[in-house]
Write a protein that binds this DNA or RNA. Structure first.
Length: 571
DNA sequence: GCCGTTTTCGGCCCGACTGTTTTCAGTCG
């Protein structure tokens, strides 16, 4: 799909135009279009073929022409032209903190700075300091930014960030005592994004300076980037930046709304406020000079005539229109989840036996679970052959006889082989209660065709981690998600939302697309170790970001309705 | 660049912070 490719070009064109000193509104037009394309759940090529490009908000004549250029010629000629006029490593240079487009342009024009090395040299030989507006402190900040870029990690997974947030919250509660009132995380972690750049913490207190001091003296703070009376920024464990912002009671709601973002969502809200003759900032919502709300986050949305919007939806992907029309979806919650359907045991590569694991799973409040160990071809994971599978089914049956009020489904995560066959025959699969089917090998070999074959198998209930992406390591294999969704809808096969922190596969955008086409989803942890079980929350957050409701998720069903849903029982 | 029952021209979110300034530009979120 070309959506992503064009989106990336538009983001870069925005950077270039900004570097060239274009008016900010033009730059924003490109960024808005880039975001729209990245978030789009339908194929831009289809929209173009239907002649409906102009119906997309923010896509006018000029941008339509560029999209068309790319679809016809696989390049945007104006972008190619622009690339000739900029420093070699512009995009890298612009990622340096405290080194923005204006400074980059100045350094390029006056000193010929094209790369990080050039910049470092210009700092060392004092040339940069000779430029207008450059003082010692500014140079020092740019040096720091350059240093940070060299050592800093990529965005980190939400699965890593959330436990860090829990630790910070506990620390603050223990050490700040009565000066700390309300406390929340904000930013992209609150919105449940799969990866985050930093952690935002918001606190309510009448004593900002003291709270800030407690915060910067936290254990494992390796750098204090700044600390004032109401805010501070630190680097934790040389790894992740954490920003604290302290506000008073009357502004807490407005600040929480503001710092949760996203930026695009906030910009839309402020535009709407303006149309109503109101103004929003992080301290409250105002009618002229009169403050009319801001103590609670709900105030902001209510005063703009809309429903409160769950943080996971706040990306300006249609949630504002839905909130105004009062048609926001009733999103699935963690409390709706009644089963975890993808759990490994010591039969293959899990850490616990079925009995021990099931006892822990029960404590999550679920009423059933599925053991889905690997199949025989998964040598690397100690996959089960037919005999051991029968043995496992026997053990599960025995446990179910002993267990009242909790049921274990005998399942399997059957490999989709390179030739498109499944690793077990239908005669075996039909003996199981539940089947997940996944690709674990030969990612390059017709992954779409193989997945479709699995979808059409009458015993396959769920396609596991459908794109195979690993957030920290590799992109997904090149599956045609439109085809997979179409066939999943036709056959009544669910797609997995694998909740393991490094997978979160399907992603939010694909979840939305699946739901829009009537496909059911299965949120599972793919647990190999009991520590993985709480990751259900990550899967639920990702599903919520994809606008998933309770009725879209098979894990919210009772055991009876789940069985009635299975396609093998609907024939 | 886009957009329009206020507008086909003149708007386009808002504020903090910093550093370099004699009143503001750049960067960030």
């Amino acid at each position: 799909m070309k959506n992503q490719e064009i989106s990336e070009i538009f983001f870069r064109m925005a950077d270039i135009l900004e570097f060239k000193g274009e008016v900010p509104f033009k730059v924003n037009a490109y960024r808005n279009a880039a975001r729209l394309l990245a978030d789009l759940t339908s194929d831009i090529e289809d929209i173009w073929k239907q002649g409906k490009l102009g119906e997309l908000p923010g896509i006018g004549k000029a941008l339509q022409g560029k999209i068309e250029d790319y679809l016809l010629n696989n390049k945007i000629s104006q972008y190619e032209e622009l690339l000739k006029q900029i420093p070699k490593d512009l995009f890298l240079l612009l990622s340096i903190q405290n080194f923005g487009p204006k400074t980059a342009a100045l350094a390029y024009k006056k000193l010929g700075v094209e790369t990080l090395d050039d910049l470092e040299k210009a700092i060392r030989n004092g040339k940069l300091a000779e430029l207008p507006g450059m003082g010692d402190k500014k140079i020092a900040k740019i040096s720091k930014g350059l240093e940070l870029l060299k050592t800093s990690q990529e965005r980190i997974s939400i699965g890593i960030a959330l436990p860090v947030i829990d630790g910070i919250k506990s620390y603050l509660k223990e050490n700040a005592g009565s000066i700390l009132k309300r406390l929340s995380h904000a930013g992209s972690t609150r919105r449940g994004r799969e990866t985050v750049h930093d952690i935002d913490i918001l606190a309510e207190s009448d004593n900002g300076p003291e709270l800030v001091q407690i915060f910067v003296k936290m254990p494992n703070v390796t750098q204090v980037l700044g600390a004032g009376d109401t805010k501070a920024s630190i680097i934790l464990n040389d790894r992740i930046q954490v920003d604290l912002r302290v506000v008073k009671k009357e502004s807490y709601g407005a600040a929480l709304q503001y710092f949760t973002g996203s930026q695009a969502h906030n910009i839309r809200l402020r535009g709407i406020a303006k149309n109503h003759g109101l103004k929003i900032n992080e301290y409250g919502i105002y009618d002229g000079d009169r403050k009319i709300g801001g103590e609670e986050e709900e105030d902001i949305y209510k005063l703009l005539g809309m429903d409160w919007i769950s943080p996971e939806l706040r990306e300006d992907r249609g949630e504002i229109e839905a909130a105004l029309a009062r048609t926001l979806p009733d999103l699935v919650t963690i409390d709706d989840i009644k089963s975890d359907l993808h759990i490994h045991s010591t039969y293959s590569d899990g850490q616990l036996g079925i009995k021990e694991m099931s006892e822990i799973v029960r404590t999550f409040g679920y009423t059933f679970m599925a053991i889905c160990d690997h199949s025989k071809s998964a040598f690397y994971a100690n996959g089960l052959n037919e005999d051991r599978l029968y043995q496992q089914i026997e053990e599960i049956n025995e446990l179910n006889r002993q267990n009242k009020g909790f049921h274990i489904l005998a399942g399997c995560e059957v490999d989709i082989l390179p030739n498109g066959d499944l690793d077990f025959s239908d005669n075996i699969l039909k003996k199981l209660d539940f089947v997940i089917s996944s690709i674990h090998s030969a990612f390059e070999t017709e992954p779409t065709k193989r997945t479709l074959a699995a979808i059409h198998n009458p015993y396959v209930d769920v396609i596991g981690h459908p794109t195979g992406r690993l957030i920290s390591r590799r992109d997904g294999f090149a599956v045609d998600m439109n085809e997979i969704i179409k066939h999943a809808a036709e056959t009544g096969t669910a797609l997995e939302v694998n909740s393991y922190w490094d997978r979160l596969d399907l992603s939010d955008i694909n979840i939305k697309k699946a739901i829009d086409n009537g496909v059911k989803l299965s949120i599972n942890t793919d647990t190999h170790h009991p520590n993985h079980l709480p990751m259900m929350e990550l899967g639920v957050a990702t599903a919520r970001r994809g606008w998933a409701r309770k009725q879209d998720i098979i894990n919210t069903m009772t055991l009876d309705s789940f069985r009635a849903w299975q396609k093998r029982n609907t024939i």
